[in-house]
Structure formats: structure tokens, C-alpha cells
């Protein structure tokens, strides 16, 4: 357990989760609220934002690799137009985790948005009417009075899904960095895979699997506690 690779990958997974989960949840909620208020273009935007979910992430990772390419990638070309020297996104150990996070966020915003949209449609219209009549004049007042509390169960579900998905990140790492450079993007699942199925150190991999499971169980326990305290209403 004191192995440096393992600690490194645990830390990287935590950082990745700490970035991807909250950002994609907040953005997902924001987009859902904006789309809910949108009229005609609603279906179009919903489709666009959901597109990454329906796309093969391994395939799209290749596209991102091209976009992030330090010399021929369009992102750095764009930055150099603005006179900013672009970093070596996936190739430098201090940026690689953030680059992967961007891909992770890009991929999961749409999914969270659809879940939030479903939650929003389930809120009774009369509650908003009541809020108007009760004097909640600004959209912010109505958000805190009705939307946010009523979305509670949805939010919990979205948090659960987002966190577990972030903890389970594997595909992009395997495709784009192979844990590198210099183990800067080693994440739990990748390390387990590498140790167990490439170096065939089964015992070591099993031990890490146990830790991985333990993390998930703790997460679930926390969520269950929150669920339990939440008052169910009809």
C-alpha cells in the first residue's frame, strides 16, 4: 500500500474526480436550466449536448489527441494566434491530468444535462405558480425556493453517477497517455490493469482492487446516509 505508483494513481484519480464530477454537474445543471427555458431550439440543443454521450469515447479521444497536439493541433494554433504559447497538453506531466479532465467534462456534461432535464420536467408547474404568487420575483428566488430543493433526488443520482464514472476513468488514459508522461496520469483502474494483466502481478493488482472497492463502498455508504436522511414526500 505504500507503493509510490499506487499512491500516485490514487492521488491522480482523486484530482481527476474532484475536477470532473463537480464541473460536469454544475455545467449539466446550468445547461439543463437554460435549455428548459428555451423554446424552439430546445430539441436541437438537447441533441447537441447529448452527442458526446452517444459517441464512442475511444474514438473521440483520438480527435481530442489531435486537438491537443502541441504542434499541429488546432487548440495551440488558436492560442498562438492570440500570442499565447500553448502547452504540451497531453505530453507534459503538469498539464496531462487537466487535459484528460477537459475530455471527461466534455463527455459527461450532456449526460448530466439529460438527467437534470428529466428532473426538471417532474417538478409540478403549480409550485412555480405558487412561488410567483408568493412574491418570488427573480429567477434566483424561484430557483432556491422550488427548483433546487425539488431537484434534490435527481442531484443525488447525478452525483452518484458522476463520481463513480470519474473514479472509473480508464479509456481515455489507456488510449492517450498510457499513464504517462512519467506516471503523471496513472489512475486507479489503469494501474490495476497494468499490474494485473500486463505485468501479471496478480497479488498486487488484487490488493489494489480491494482498495478500489473499499473507496466505492465508502462513497456508497455516504450517499446512502444522505438518502436516508432525506425526507420522502408524496
Amino acid at each position: 500500500m505504500n507503493d509510490r505508483t499506487f499512491r500516485r494513481s490514487l492521488w491522480n484519480t482523486s484530482v481527476y474526480t474532484a475536477i470532473v464530477a463537480p464541473v460536469s454537474i454544475v455545467l449539466g445543471l446550468g445547461v439543463a436550466l437554460l435549455i428548459e427555458g428555451e423554446g424552439r431550439a430546445r430539441g436541437f440543443f438537447r441533441t447537441v449536448y447529448f452527442l458526446p454521450v452517444a459517441s464512442l469515447i475511444v474514438a473521440m479521444a483520438t480527435v481530442w489527441q489531435y486537438i491537443f497536439h502541441p504542434t499541429i493541433g488546432p487548440l495551440n494554433a488558436l492560442l498562438s494566434l492570440a500570442g499565447i504559447p500553448g502547452p504540451n497538453w497531453l505530453g507534459a506531466s503538469n498539464t496531462v491530468l487537466y487535459s484528460l479532465s477537459i475530455i471527461g467534462i466534455w463527455q459527461s456534461v450532456g449526460f448530466n444535462m439529460v438527467l437534470f432535464l428529466a428532473g426538471l420536467t417532474a417538478i409540478p408547474r403549480e409550485l412555480y405558480a405558487a412561488a410567483h404568487v408568493d412574491g418570488a420575483k427573480s429567477a434566483l428566488d424561484r430557483f432556491f425556493l422550488v427548483t433546487w430543493p425539488m431537484l434534490g433526488p435527481t442531484t443525488l443520482f447525478v452525483v452518484t453517477i458522476s463520481v463513480t464514472n470519474a473514479v472509473k476513468v480508464f479509456e481515455t488514459v489507456k488510449m492517450l497517455t498510457d499513464g504517462g508522461p512519467n506516471k503523471a496520469s496513472e489512475v486507479l483502474l489503469f494501474t490495476i490493469y497494468q499490474e494485473g494483466f500486463v505485468y501479471l502481478r496478480v497479488g498486487y493488482a488484487s490488493a489494489m482492487t480491494v482498495v478500489f472497492l473499499a473507496i466505492l463502498v465508502v462513497l456508497m455508504f455516504l450517499q446512502y446516509r444522505v438518502l436516508d436522511r432525506r425526507v420522502h414526500y408524496t
Partner: peptide, 20 residues
């Protein structure tokens, strides 16, 4: 706006905020 009319309303479903 509805909020400024000082008109109170009782809804058919009561529309009580379920979390309060």
C-alpha cells in the same frame, strides 16, 4: 408582475413546497 400584485392564491393541488 405576479409577485407585486399582492394577490394571494390557493391552488387546487395546494402547491405546498414539499421540502419545507
Amino acid at each position: 408582475a405576479a409577485a407585486d400584485r399582492n394577490i394571494a392564491m390557493v391552488f387546487q393541488s395546494y402547491a405546498l413546497y414539499p421540502h419545507l
